[in-house]
Every structure is written in C-alpha cells, then in structure tokens.
Design a binder for these strands. Structure first.
Lengths: 136, 136
DNA sequence: GTTAGTACTATCCTAAAGGTTAGCGCTAAC
DNA sequence: GTTAGCGCTAACCTTTAGGATAGTACTAAC
C-alpha cells in the first residue's frame, strides 16, 4: 500500500521463464492433487514418526480429525500407494496402517514444510515481542 | 484390503515420539495456515521466477485464477509479508507486485514440492505404461 | 461522447471439504 | 442382557473456497 512515482516498471515478463513457470505450476498442481488438503500430510507424518498404527490410535495422534474423515483419507492414501492396510482377523479384529516405501519419497517435502513452519512460528513470536517491547 | 493373520501388531505407539509428532503436526498446521490453499504458492512461484509483475500479467501467468481471487490472495500475501505492492501514480496507474526477502525462505519448500510433483507425474506415467504394455 | 485499458471490487452462487451425530457388526466382559 | 471397545459408515448439515458476471474510478485516445 505504498505509493511511488519513479519508473513504470519494465514490464519484466521474461519469455525465457514462461515455460519454467508453467512447469512449476503444473508440478505444484500435481502435488496438491495427491497430498493436498488439511489431513493427508499430517497422517503420513504421524505414520512416519509413530510407526504403524491402528485406527483409533491414529485418530488420537492426528488431533482434531473425525472418524469419517480419517477413514476417507486413509482410503485415498491407500489407493494412491502411500499407505498399506493390514487386517489381523482376531478377536477383536485389529487393523493397522503403515507407510509404504513410496511415502518415503515425501520425506524431503515433509521436512522442509515442517522446518519452514517452525521457523515461521518463531518469526511471528519475535515480531510480536518487538511490537510489544519497543515504543516507537 | 489384504487380510492377514499373524501378529496383532505390537501397538507400536512409541512414547518418545509423541512430542515430536505433535510438533510436526503444529508446524504443518502453521505452514498450511499461511501458504495453504490452491493459489498462494503458485503466485509466489510465479513472482519468484517471472520477477515483479502487474496484476493482469499475473492473472495470465497463474492460469485459471479469477481477478477476484487473485486480488484477495495478493492482499493476504502482502499482509503476511510475502509480497510487496508498488503503485506508480502515472497515467494509467501501474501497480506491480514483487516478492520480499521473506518469500525467499520458501525457496526450499517450493523446490521440494515442485520436484516431488514432477517425479510423481513421471511415476504415474510409467505405471500407466506398464499397465497397458504387459499382458498378465 | 464512446471506446478501451488498468486495477480492481461487489454480488451472487456452486461445489467441495469437513464436522456432528448416530449406529452397525462383531465379541468379550460384567 | 447390558455395556464396552474396535473399526468403521451413513445421513445430514455447515463452512469455506472458489467461480461467474458485472461494474467502478480513472484517464487517454478516437
């Protein structure tokens, strides 16, 4: 919201990057398509860290998710090859979910995302501190 | 969807990782909160690659976005310190958007996300090829 | 004075995501 | 026979994201 009056900006479109940009756009689209949404990466992360888990256990770990959504997301994740569902026909029936090797390709994605979120939270905290401490 | 009947799985909850898991969950939550959604990362990526751009230019680059949404997203991104809005009071008025240094902290996030999306697309292609080529 | 361009914005509407509640089929314990 | 736990699932509802269309304020050109 700052007004300026110097140069009309050189309409820097950069033809050489249009293709690159389209590729990036496509790749982001693809990524969001399979692991986008509120829960998928959280579930995968929980299974990566906590190891194979059962349904109710998972619902406790991934705080806030409802059984309906968890069930739906697990189905989608299984369909896309990110997790494996194991049924032990005992009494009572036990079902466990575990990540597949393919999920491990998401390792770097998860770590950068988590790292960024952590640093961002600290930044916000500091910004707030500075705001309340300084008096100018 | 595979049935088994071996061990009831050792209820591997792993107390030592609960905290770790909660932290990851929180970090993912924070990340999604500021750069989640269908468009934000795409816009930042476009500005990163294409350099500072004007409104209509951006709308062309980020294919599929409507003016209303673009306007809304840009406001949010500016509020959170990811982009800078420059107004050149000329005739006609020209407005450019550019990324801030803080946006550059998203570099690793964007590249891993884009890289993963690209490899995933190739995997899907190969899976499909194998499916249509082999006859078993 | 009409048209065109720039950068939006208001209104309205649809569709997808997600939440709430209740319940099923099974078995084992009280 | 009632309760409780496991792993869901169906029905219904709310919230949010996003899309379509039209219009605003300004100015300059025709």
């Amino acid at each position: 919201m700052i007004e300026q009056n110097e140069k009309p900006a050189p309409t820097c479109s950069g033809k050489h990057t249009k293709e690159e940009c389209a590729k990036g756009l496509q790749a982001l689209e693809d990524t969001f398509y399979v692991i986008g949404g509120k829960w998928k990466l959280k579930i995968i992360n929980a299974l990566r860290i906590g190891g194979s888990s059962r349904f109710n256990q998972l619902q406790q770990t991934v705080t806030g998710i409802s059984a309906r959504i968890l069930s739906k997301e697990l189905k989608e994740l299984e369909l896309n090859g990110f997790i494996k569902r194991n049924v032990y026909t005992e009494t009572p029936v036990v079902v466990t979910y575990e990540i597949t090797p393919y999920s491990n390709t998401l390792g770097p994605v998860l770590s950068t995302l988590i790292e960024w979120g952590t640093t961002h939270r600290n930044k916000i905290k500091n910004d707030y501190k500075e705001l309340t401490t300084s008096k100018d």
